[in-house]
C-alpha cells in the first residue's frame, strides 16, 4: 500500500504539448495507467496511443479517470485545475511552473468544500515506487519500501531518494508538494496521510526558506505524529528579499529563514540533516532513534 496513488490509479493528462506527451509516455513506461488526454476541440483523436477528449468530464465518464496531471502552460493552468475539480477528479497533480499568485488564490477558493485534493503546482508530482508515477521524476532512482518523502523541491527530492535508495531504504510514496507560495497539499496534509498509512514507517520532509509551513508542520508533528520524521531545510545561505528560483522561496521581513525553521523542527524533536549530503543517513538515524 501507499498513499494517494497505486496500481489502480487511472490518469488523464491535461496539456498535451511536447512536455505533456513526453511524460505521458514516461509515466506509462513506469507502469501507470495513462487512460486519457484532454485537448479542447480535438476530442475523438488520439495522442501517444491515448484517447483524447474535449473535456475532463468526458475523460472521467468514458475512461474512469480518477487522477489528473496538468502540464497546461501558466495562462491556462489555473483554469485546468478548476476544470478537473469541477469534473469531480479526486486527485489533481499540477506540474506547471509560473502560475500567477492571484490565479492560485481563486483556485484555492474554488477548491474549498470540494472533494478534490490538489498537489502542486510547480512540483515534480507523486510516485509510489514499483506501482505508478504521475509526474516528471526519474522513476529508476526509486525503490519500493516503507519511507514516505515530502518535499517543496524537485531535484533535491531526487537527491534525497537517491541517498535513501543507496542506503537500501525504499520509499512508500514520494510527494513533491511544490515551490509556490500557494500550494494545494501542504506538509501537514501529507504528514497526516503518511501517519495513517500502515505501509509507511517513517517520513523524510524537505523544506526550504519562505513562509512558515515548516514551523506549522513541526508543531503538528509534535502533537500528532506517531512515526519518526527527519527533516532538511534548504537555503541557509540565501540572502533576504530575493526569490531563490521558486516563487515561494523568499525571506521577507525577517520571516521564513532556514534558522527559524530548523529551530522549530529540532524543538519538535525531529533530527534535521546538517547538510544536503546527509539526507539519507539522517532519516536512518531518526528511525534508529525511534526503534
Amino acid at each position: 500500500m501507499s498513499i494517494l496513488l497505486d496500481s489502480n490509479s487511472r490518469v488523464v493528462t491535461q496539456g498535451l504539448g511536447a512536455t505533456g506527451r513526453f511524460h505521458l509516455n514516461g509515466c506509462r513506461e513506469y507502469g501507470t495507467s495513462m487512460v486519457a488526454g484532454v485537448r479542447p476541440g480535438k476530442g475523438g483523436q488520439t495522442a501517444e496511443d491515448t484517447p483524447v477528449f474535449d473535456t475532463v468530464a468526458e475523460a472521467v465518464d468514458k475512461e474512469g479517470a480518477n487522477i489528473s496531471v496538468i502540464y497546461v502552460p501558466p495562462p491556462g493552468a489555473a483554469d485546468a485545475i478548476m476544470e478537473a475539480a469541477d469534473a469531480g477528479i479526486p486527485l489533481v497533480v499540477c506540474i506547471t511552473e509560473g502560475i500567477p499568485v492571484t490565479d492560485m488564490i481563486r483556485v484555492q477558493r474554488f477548491l474549498e468544500g470540494r472533494d478534490t485534493r490538489l498537489i502542486g503546482p510547480n512540483c515534480p508530482g507523486i510516485i509510489t515506487p514499483g506501482q505508478a508515477k504521475v509526474g516528471i521524476m526519474p522513476g529508476y532512482i526509486h525503490e519500493p519500501g516503507r519511507v514516505g518523502v515530502i518535499s517543496r523541491s524537485g531535484t533535491l527530492t531526487y537527491e534525497a531518494v537517491h541517498q535513501l535508495t543507496q542506503l537500501g531504504v525504499g520509499q512508500s510514496t514520494c510527494i513533491g508538494i511544490g515551490g509556490d507560495p500557494i500550494i494545494g497539499t501542504g506538509f501537514i496534509d501529507a504528514l497526516d496521510l503518511f501517519n495513517r498509512d500502515p505501509d509507511t514507517d517513517a517520513v523524510m520532509m524537505i523544506g526550504e526558506i519562505g513562509g512558515n509551513a515548516e514551523e506549522l508542520a513541526a508543531a503538528w508533528v509534535q502533537e500528532n505524529m506517531t512515526k519518526p520524521v527527519a527533516a532538511f531545510i534548504a537555503g541557509k545561505t540565501a540572502p533576504p528579499g530575493k526569490r531563490m528560483g521558486h516563487a515561494g522561496a523568499i525571506i521577507s521581513g525577517g520571516q521564513g529563514t532556514a534558522a527559524d525553521k530548523e529551530a522549530a523542527l529540532e524543538a519538535a524533536g525531529m533530527p534535521v540533516a546538517p547538510s544536503p549530503a546527509e539526507l539519507g543517513v539522517t532519516l536512518v538515524m531518526a528511525m534508529q532513534r525511534a526503534a
Binding site: T19, I136, S151, R152, S153, G154, T155, L156, T157, Y158, E159, G179, I206, E208, I209, F232, A234, G235, K236, T237, A238, K242, M244, G245, H246, A249, A258, P274, S275, P276, A277
Partner: peptide, 30 residues
C-alpha cells in the same frame, strides 16, 4: 545547478565546506 532546491542546498554545502557561494544559479529542468 538544476532545480531551485538543489541550487540552494548546493550553496549551503559550499558554505559548510568552508567556502562562500558566488551565486545562486538554477538552469532549470528543461
Amino acid at each position: 545547478v538544476n532545480g531551485a532546491g538543489l541550487a540552494m542546498a548546493t550553496m549551503d554545502i559550499i558554505q559548510a565546506a568552508g567556502g562562500r557561494p558566488a551565486n545562486f544559479c538554477d538552469v532549470g529542468g528543461g
